[in-house]
Nucleic acid binder design. Structure first.
Length: 994
DNA sequence: CCTATATCGTA
DNA sequence: GTACGATATAGGA
């Protein structure tokens, strides 16, 4: 580096985002791979190398580097944890382009620089400073205002898109101060994009005035008392410390310990074959020809080079998409930073043998086939994994993950409960068979209470956590997990926000709901033909079970790394199936975004009043004891009322009561329906037993059990929502199940009243009115139903009026009740038998009702027949949003099994579409509340109801927002032919809010 | 100690 | 008639 040299420093990361938004979307012709940003970048870089002398800059570079952000966390996050906290995830079609642009830089034979823990801006600042010290000139290729503080003698910026030079006058125009004071102005004004706080009430204009008047930030803060405007004076005094922190955030670091020396940035000649090969792969025809001409390369003789594509473009339906190979030998052999090959080579984890395929060779379906074949071909070997015991090795694994652009991971903990579990270690997998386990908190020895302390040689927890965080929060690396909600919840407790993500469990769920479970072991056996080590095999079970922190490292590595390896393999098989099946949009709009939403809900939990529950337990116990005594007296012998077997023997054996039925296994049936019949005939014992059962149920399942779920630290109850448990798309709730809290009886509602808002808050319950019937009215296009919903008429009364020809006004409640039962029956895939049981009438009468109903609403019968036919044809049925539910036994020989599948197939699109609607509402709720500056927190979902905790002062403002989001949740994907109606109420407890 | 069954709470 | 999960009992290992 010497005077007269000219260093070009390209701000790669900001260019990517700017190009993406500024340029029209562009996809590769042969397969739809998004390449708009790559194209813009290549054209720019070529012009920089070849044509800058024709621009305002007037010179060609002697040295050039493209600088990227390597990680989401830097010293600035330690200083201020909110720094860049509100960055949205990059758009789906931009993500694969990060990696491609890095590969483009190398194809241009230009240094690509990025360093862990440093922002691109700081690296640029350091190079600029070194270049100036050596007497060279600097052009920073960026329009980012954060870099403008570097402008000065010998340093200019260049905006390639506007082809505009940014020198001191331009900086002054923007900030009202000279470049050396820009950081002071930014410190005062703050920055919403980077989430730099600044001083409230002070914008760029005011800040520039103040800095001009007082000279610099410190002087201003010292003399803030002299400011005349009272508001401004107080704000400055109060927020002086925030201003100082902001200054540190915006001030660029010129002393980054550079891994790639500045002299290594010297411009090298273009390798025509290499560059043309890359450009041909990208199918940039014009640029390919220009480069070929300039480098005297015969383009026709150059083969396209394989490139690494981090993950697939979504493709709305996937039908037309074709893919380049997901990986190849060059991807792993290409250095990622400007550091030398010699230094980079030994750090690399050796790639396994991979096949190189030219782009365009695969259709999605063929890709699925080849992936399936490959999955069976390369067996899982769980003895070949690495146990990572040094920070150096961990860094190497992370570097390889960054290069690959995706990594499968798994977290090992002390508990299955994500609110309690401590992280014990984590595993990573980068390609099939190439996985490691990083133990962090394993303890030696110990079958008893005492152990021999931590195993020595493990990486210290804080250091490992820092590295893990940088990888997990790296926007350009896709994190692949199995049931990511669990791992993300654990990591959230360690201050790590995992994103972007893919979840193999959810991919499987979208593809194969109804075809079996979606647990990892099951998927592995199904798709890979491999049975992974069972958790119990390494930890034992029952009394002898040990925590994962006591599992010896070799066993732990085999188990944990295998999980990551299997997850990666599953992803490679399942992810292309999404595109091939046209389900990418379903996955990306209804499943994946719900992961953080549910994680937040689970972590918030809900408060319960333990005093209420404890009092109820006492009341119920008393009632049970009283009933028990009476039952034993009437029975004439002691009987375990909780034992259906003993009850059956007593009632139908010893006492010989009439109406005995048998269960599927031949035992006496003693269900509530049977006992109710007997009670209605005047028998006392069944009545007493029913009462006892109710109390027993409420006590054991709710009042006794719920306090045991109160978390010791949060003092709240944290349920777990399962995303992939149902065939229809509904969520489920467990440990504890908060979706079946009693509401129908007065006694039961007392339990609901124990769910309370925290002081100063209320619970808000917002529920969809008749959502399933509305969905049915939409799908089957029933004119009377649509009209009734449009007019806000009582839907069951309308049904009764249509069927029985009676006016709605003054209707007999029994008539309405019958119509209501029929409406529910329709949703459940009605049968004469079921309706008869429900209404306590004969099969013939029930059949006549159904016939009558279909006469009045022929569209419903058409819908049902069409749904069954579609299910027989496709094996699945579809919701209005495209979710599928499979019923493989729809054509079973066994008539009752077949009928059951038909009813389920009729119900699934109705229940599932409603489930999709509320999922969409939940996904939009957090941003909608944030946009309205409301602090309401979503706590629970109960299928058609959402429960929030809202500060007292915000109730009025929150209700309309919640209602609006829920009522418009179907839009714009689907325009329902009926309106959705939401009722919302606030109260101190759940009973009163509902 | 583990699993199947019956029962019953919710939408 | 659909979709779930929790509990207690009972029986086999």
């Amino acid at each position: 580096m010497k005077p007269g040299d000219h260093v070009f420093l390209v701000d790669g990361s900001s260019y990517i985002f700017r190009a993406y938004h500024a340029l029209p979307p562009l996809t590769r012709k042969s397969d739809g791979l998004p390449i708009g940003a790559v194209s813009g970048f290549c054209n720019m870089l070529y012009r920089l190398l070849r044509e800058t002398e024709k621009t305002e800059i007037g010179v060609k570079p002697t040295h050039i580097a493209v600088v990227f952000d390597a990680s989401a966390i830097t010293f600035r996050n330690k200083l201020y944890d909110q720094y860049k906290a509100h960055r949205p995830e990059p758009p789906e079609d931009l993500r694969p382009q990060f990696g491609l642009i890095r590969q483009a830089v190398k194809a241009f034979n230009v240094a690509s620089v990025e360093q862990l823990g440093y922002e691109a801006d700081d690296i640029i600042a350091t190079y600029a400073s070194q270049a100036r010290a050596a007497g060279a000139d600097v052009t920073i290729v960026s329009s980012d205002k954060d870099l403008m503080q570097l402008v000065g003698p010998g340093v200019v910026m260049y905006d390639t898109m506007k082809e505009k030079r940014i020198g001191e006058p331009e900086v002054f125009e923007k900030f009202g101060v000279t470049p050396d004071k820009v950081a002071d102005v930014q410190a005062l004004a703050g920055d919403s994009v980077d989430n730099v706080p600044g001083v409230p009430g002070i914008g760029v204009k005011t800040a520039a005035g103040l800095i001009t008047e007082y000279g610099d930030l410190e002087t201003l803060l010292a003399r803030a008392g002299e400011i005349k405007q009272p508001k401004r004076r107080e704000s400055l005094i109060e927020h002086a410390e925030m201003a100082r922190i902001s200054k540190t955030l915006v001030k660029l670091d010129c002393a980054v310990p550079l891994e790639c020396p500045i002299d290594a940035l010297a411009v090298a000649s273009l390798d025509g074959v290499r560059l043309v090969g890359f450009l041909k792969t990208m199918e940039f025809t014009t640029l390919t020809n220009r480069v070929a001409a300039a480098t005297e390369t015969v383009a026709a003789e150059v083969k396209p080079v394989p490139v690494t594509i981090k993950f697939w473009p979504p493709g709305a339906d996937g039908t037309g998409a074709v893919f380049a190979p997901a990986e190849d030998a060059t991807g792993a052999a290409t250095p990622m930073s400007g550091s030398s090959e010699a230094e980079a080579a030994p750090r690399r984890v050796t790639p396994s043998k991979t096949v190189s395929v030219a782009p365009g060779d695969f259709t999605p379906a063929q890709l699925v086939e080849s992936r399936l074949a490959a999955a069976k071909e390369q067996p899982v070997d769980n003895t070949a994994y690495e146990t990572v015991m040094s920070l150096e090795r961990l860094d190497e694994w992370i570097a390889v993950a960054r290069e690959a652009g995706h990594v499968a991971f798994d977290t090992e903990t002390t508990s299955l409960d994500s609110m309690m579990a401590e992280m014990v270690g984590f595993s990573l997998a980068i390609e099939c068979g190439r996985a490691c386990y990083v133990p962090l908190a394993h303890r030696a020895g110990g079958t008893g209470l005492f152990d021999d302390g931590p195993i020595i040689g493990q990486i210290p927890f804080p250091e490992a956590l820092e590295r893990l965080k940088s990888l997990m929060e790296d926007e350009s690396v896709l994190k692949i997990g199995q049931n990511v909600k669990y791992d993300a919840a654990i990591m959230a407790r360690y201050g790590i926000a995992v994103r972007p993500i893919d979840d193999t469990m959810l991919i499987s769920y979208v593809l194969d709901a109804g075809k079996g479970g979606h647990g990892m072991d099951e998927l592995s056996e199904r798709w890979l033909g491999h049975k992974p080590i069972a958790y119990k095999e390494v930890t034992g079970s029952g009394k002898a079970q040990i925590g994962f922190d006591r599992v010896p490292l070799d066993r732990a590595t085999a188990y944990a790394a295998e999980d990551a390896d299997v997850t990666l393999r599953l992803w490679r098989v399942l992810k292309p199936r999404l595109v091939a099946s046209g389900l990418t949009t379903t996955y990306e709009t209804l499943e994946r975004p719900l992961v953080p939403v549910l994680m937040h809900m689970e972590r918030r939990g809900i408060a319960i009043d333990r005093q209420i529950l404890s009092r109820l337990s006492g009341d119920f116990a008393q009632g049970m004891a009283r009933l028990e005594a009476e039952i034993h007296e009437k029975a004439g012998e002691p009987v375990n009322i909780g034992s259906p077997k003993q009850l059956g023997d007593l009632l139908f054996g010893k006492l010989g009561l009439p109406g005995a039925k048998k269960t599927a296994t031949g035992a006496w049936a003693t269900g509530a329906d049977v006992l109710q019949d007997l009670a209605d005939q005047g028998h006392e014992l069944p009545r007493l037993i029913l009462d006892w059962r109710q109390l027993s149920k409420l006590k054991s399942t709710y009042t006794d059990a719920l306090p045991g779920y109160v978390h010791p630290e949060t003092q709240r109850v944290h349920t777990s929502f399962a995303l992939a448990a149902t065939t229809t798309g509904r969520l489920s709730s467990s440990e504890p199940n908060l979706q079946n809290i009693p509401v129908r009886t007065e006694e039961g509602r007392k339990i609901r009243s124990a769910f309370v808002a925290t002081p100063g808050h209320k619970l808000v319950s917002a529920d969809y009115s008749q959502i399933e019937l509305r969905v049915l009215a939409h799908m089957a296009e029933i004119p009377q139903l649509r009209q009734a919903f449009a007019d806000g008429i009582d839907i069951h009364a309308m049904t009764a009026s249509e069927m029985f020809g009676v006016p709605v006004a003054g209707m007999d409640p029994m008539v309405r009740r019958r119509a209501k039962a029929i409406n529910f029956g329709i949703i459940y895939g009605i049968s004469a038998f079921g309706l008869a049981v429900q209404l306590g009438i004969g099969r013939e009468e029930a059949g006549a009702y159904i016939k009558k109903y279909f006469e009045r609403f022929p569209g419903i019968r058409d819908y049902m027949e069409a749904t069954k036919a579609a299910c027989r044809r496709d094996g699945y049925v579809t919701t209005v949003f495209g979710r599928r539910a499979h019923y493989p036994e729809i054509a079973a020989k066994n008539p009752s099994l077949r009928a059951f599948n038909e009813r389920a197939a009729i119900n699934a699109p109705i229940q599932g579409s409603a489930a999709d609607v509320i999922r969409r509402a939940m996904i939009r709720m957090e941003p909608a509340l944030a946009a309205a500056k409301l602090s309401a927190r979503m706590l629970l979902q109960v299928h058609d109801e959402l429960i929030f905790e809202v500060p007292d002062a915000e109730i009025e403002a929150t209700l309309p927002v919640v209602r609006e989001v829920m009522e418009t949740a179907a839009e714009p994907a689907v325009t329902l032919r009926v309106p959705l109606k939401v009722d919302a109420r606030a109260a101190h407890n759940w009973d009163e809010a509902h």
